[in-house]
Amino acid sequence: MMKVALFDFDGTIYPYETFNILMEKLKTHPEYKKSYRIFMTKFLPVYTAYKLNIISKMLMQKKAMELYMLSFKGRSKAEIEDFFAQAAAGMAEDLRTSLIEEIKELRQKNYYTVLISGAYVPLLEALFDKGHFDCIIGTEVHYSGGAYNYKEGVQRVHAEGKIDSIKQHFHDKQIDWNESCAYSDSYTDLKMLELVGHPVAVTPDPKLLETAQSNNWRIYSEENGGSL
Rank of each mutant, 00 (worst) to 15 (best):
D8G: 05
D10Q: 04
I13L: 15
I13G: 01
P15T: 05
Y16I: 07
E17D: 14
F19T: 01
M23Y: 08
M23I: 10
K25I: 03
K27D: 05
K27F: 11
H29T: 02
P30C: 10
E31D: 10
K33L: 03
R37H: 10
I38G: 05
F39S: 00
T41F: 13
F43R: 05
Y47L: 07
T48L: 14
A49I: 03
Y50D: 09
K51V: 12
S56D: 11
M58A: 15
M58Y: 14
L59C: 08
K62E: 08
A64V: 03
A64L: 04
M65W: 06
L70V: 07
L70H: 14
L70E: 14
F72D: 00
F72P: 00
G74F: 11
R75W: 12
K77T: 02
I80C: 04
D82G: 03
D82R: 03
F83V: 01
A87P: 01
E93L: 15
D94Q: 14
R96M: 13
I100P: 04
I100Y: 11
K104W: 10
N110A: 11
V114D: 09
I116R: 03
L124W: 03
L124I: 03
L127M: 07
F128P: 02
F133W: 08
C135L: 11
C135T: 12
I136H: 07
G138S: 01
G138K: 00
T139S: 06
H142N: 04
G146P: 13
A147V: 15
V154A: 01
V157W: 03
V157L: 05
A159R: 10
A159C: 10
E160L: 11
K162S: 02
I163R: 04
K167P: 02
K167H: 13
Q168F: 13
H169I: 02
H171A: 10
D172Q: 14
D176I: 11
S180G: 08
A182M: 15
Y183S: 08
D189P: 06
K191C: 05
K191R: 08
E194Y: 06
E194S: 07
V196G: 07
V196S: 09
G197R: 12
H198Q: 15
A201T: 11
P204K: 04
D205A: 02
D205R: 01
P206V: 07
P206Q: 06
L208R: 01
L209T: 11
E210R: 09
N216R: 13
E222Q: 08
N224R: 09
G226N: 07
S227F: 11
S227L: 10
L228G: 06
